[in-house]
């Protein structure tokens, strides 16, 4: 087991290095002057330009720049925004909001996704199954931002069941609607994945053997079908946590949630490249760690993996 963990951990390091290098390279080493980009193309005083070059280490060779960038990520000393705030402070305020949002979305898709998926899978071909399948296709087909607007408009404005935008401090209650929107597309995938998995396992030989032992229907379903079917679902959910944090940009924009996505989007609009690179680096780190957790979870759920 220890071997397994350390092996997976070692495999993630090149992924993290590669992804951050990719981002850094794209932003700082592609044609076009990053400093000009920083100012949004407006002319600036040579002294300011020099200072900026020094601040972002652009006077150094590329590999040293990248090394310093990695160091800043690991030490969480992410530099300053244009308005002079510490990026780590700004991120520190935005991050808990997005984390809350992502966790709520994850809980939403996990609970409803598994419940609907299991029922649909157990009643394959029945009305419930067909309805859920069609509904999940529609959810996947409609872009998140359209769903967001529509739900905001109907649930938030017309019906007044929830607040259309999120208030100061982003309390849990205000986040329900954005979380639902954020998790909706993944919900559709979770339902379909659970359903497929259940159908596959329902016909497995060991399920028939379990039935032949004289176990009750309930026990066959919960102990033998469910547990085995949930392995791929749990894997998907774990990997999805990372994408939810990244994908929150759209949802946070619609509902005006003061989270990482909003921060990132504003930084992009304002051309604050260093902030963008810093935030994306942190997101990649989270994504990679989430994947590690998934691997461990997977090994815990499926004993066959542990010894590979």
């Amino acid at each position: 087991m220890f071997m397994f963990i350390s092996k997976r951990f070692l495999q993630l390091i090149p992924v993290f290095l590669g992804a951050t290098l990719l981002v850094y390279f794209l932003v700082f080493a592609t044609p076009g002057d990053p400093i000009a980009a920083l100012s949004g193309g407006k002319p600036m005083a040579p002294a300011v330009e020099e200072a900026l070059r020094a601040q972002y280490n652009l006077d150094q060779p590329f590999w040293i720049q990248y090394g310093l960038y990695l160091k800043s990520l690991v030490t969480f000393d992410l530099g300053q925004t244009f308005s002079g705030q510490e990026v780590s402070d700004v991120l520190g305020r935005a991050f808990p909001v997005t984390a809350r949002l992502a966790i709520m979305a994850l809980a939403f898709e996990a609970v409803f996704g598994v419940i609907f998926g299991v029922i649909a899978g157990m009643r394959k071909g029945k009305l419930f199954d067909s309805t859920v399948l069609v509904a999940s296709l529609i959810v996947i087909a409609v872009p998140t931002f359209v769903l967001g607007f529509v739900l905001q408009f109907f649930v938030g404005v017309k019906l007044d069941w929830a607040k259309p935008t999120v208030g100061v401090g982003a309390p849990w209650g205000d986040l329900i609607l954005p979380a639902a929107v954020l998790g909706l597309v993944s919900l559709a995938y979770v339902i379909r994945l659970t359903r497929t998995s259940i159908i596959e396992n329902k016909n497995a030989d060991y399920v028939r053997t379990a039935t032949a032992k004289g176990l009750s229907r309930r026990r066959v379903v919960s102990v033998h079908i469910l547990r085995n079917s949930l392995i791929p679902v749990v894997t998907f959910l774990g990997a999805d946590l990372g994408s939810l944090m990244g994908g929150a940009i759209v949802t946070e924009g619609i509902f005006n949630v003061p989270g990482v996505g909003n921060l990132l989007f504003k930084a992009i609009k304002a051309g604050e490249t260093p902030t963008v690179v810093a935030v994306v680096g942190v997101l990649v780190l989270i994504f990679v760690l989430a994947n590690l957790v998934v691997d461990l979870l997977y090994a815990w759920l499926d004993p066959r993996i542990r010894y590979v």
């Binding site: 060991y206 053997t209 379990a210 004289g214 033998h224 085995n228 392995i231 499926d302």
Partner: peptide, 21 residues
């Protein structure tokens, strides 16, 4: 009846035991 009156031994030993228990 299953189990204590009628038992079963299935065909393929590879697929008839639940791999996760």
């Amino acid at each position: 009846l299953r189990g204590n009156s009628i038992g079963m031994v299935p065909q393929d030993p590879m697929s008839n035991l639940n791999p996760v228990w």
